[in-house]
Amino acid sequence: MTDQDVTGLPPLRADLVIEYPFIRTTGPVVGAFLTGLREAVLVGIRRADGTVMVPPVEYDPVTSEPLSEVVEVSSTGTIVSWTWVDPPRPGSPWDTPHGLALVLLDGADTPLLHGVLVDSPDQVATGLRVEAVWKSERVGHITDLVGFAPVARDTLEGS
């Protein structure tokens, strides 16, 4: 479409922002997870086969049955997969380089995605035992959980 490039001027451009101030109603299941975060407790939901999903979901992902038994799981778990984020993304909950990991909490059968609070990727490993680090003032939001920090001298192999 060079025939339309008739001005010979530098291209127009604009810095635009789209922003929506959503407030979302949670329902009882997601609400229970957020209530747990505010109380510094991690919860999941039990499926018919006895396994526990964290975070809890409202319907069984295989059978589609409604799920209703919210159960508490441990605030300690094991890293099953991870990556390193440097620099942190704009708008990220973290303002320093950090790990991002799938953490299988004790008592859970699915891993939770969250930050790993260490200084370098040398300090993260699959199998590393970690525990939740909470904000002192919590409101019922995923950022009530600051992230996971290594449990001192406690690895999967050594535990």
Binding site: L16, V17, I18, E19, F22, R24, T26, H141
Partner: peptide, 13 residues
């Protein structure tokens, strides 16, 4: 119980 959560979204481009 927590009944609602703020989930603002923002896109700069």
């Amino acid at each position: 119980p927590v009944l609602s959560v703020r989930t603002p979204i923002r896109l700069e481009y």
